[in-house]
Design a protein around this nucleic acid. Structure first.
Length: 160
DNA sequence: GCCAACGTTGGC
DNA sequence: GCCAACGTTGGC
């Protein structure tokens, strides 16, 4: 039996709502977080993201980008099936079943926040100025969030 | 649609 | 291993 997890970590997962938004996850309840095709993010999934961790759901590349809810990691890294699917845009002919290049995790819906926390709000909040997502040039679709920042975001996400 | 700021590819 | 060219991300 594995040792119990002592600390949970917090993450921000980006997705384009037109492709897969929080309402899709709410409907499915549990879904693979797949289609990751960046080595840095792949390594995060492999080495850092763990079962029990909390992930903020961020809507990117949309009219009002921002954090819309949260989910929980319920299964650790496993090979992303899309890399072997010829019909998928995520198919990777260089990847093999014996040595898969790309990984996914499974996430479970937790909630849609009563109030979305927009990118504009994040930028305007002095307490959140160190967030990785706010750094210039950052394009990683998964970044870590500190516990303090996570709690701050939850506060901003509550109804008045 | 523009474009800054990356990441990836491939010739050498 | 360098780096130019190309592709992608994602805010605006």
């Amino acid at each position: 039996m594995k040792a119990p997890k002592t600390t949970i970590r917090y993450w921000l997962f980006k997705s384009e709502p037109d492709v897969f938004g929080i309402s899709h996850l709410r409907q499915k309840k549990i879904a693979p977080w797949d289609g990751i095709r960046n080595y840095q993010v792949r390594n995060l999934l492999r080495d850092e993201v763990a079962v029990g961790d909390i992930a903020l759901f961020y809507h990117s590349n949309t009219k009002i980008p921002g954090i819309v809810g949260e989910m929980e990691v319920v299964k650790g890294a496993f090979p992303d099936v899309l890399q072997f699917d010829l019909a998928s845009e995520y198919f990777d002919k260089a990847s093999t079943v014996e040595s898969p290049r790309w990984l996914a995790v499974t996430v479970k819906f937790r909630q849609i926040f009563p109030r979305m926390v927009t990118l504009k709000q994040l930028r305007a909040d002095a307490l959140l100025s160190q967030m990785t997502i706010l750094r210039k040039g950052n394009r990683l679709s998964i970044t870590e969030v500190t516990e303090a920042d996570y709690h701050r975001i939850c506060l901003l996400a509550k109804k008045n």
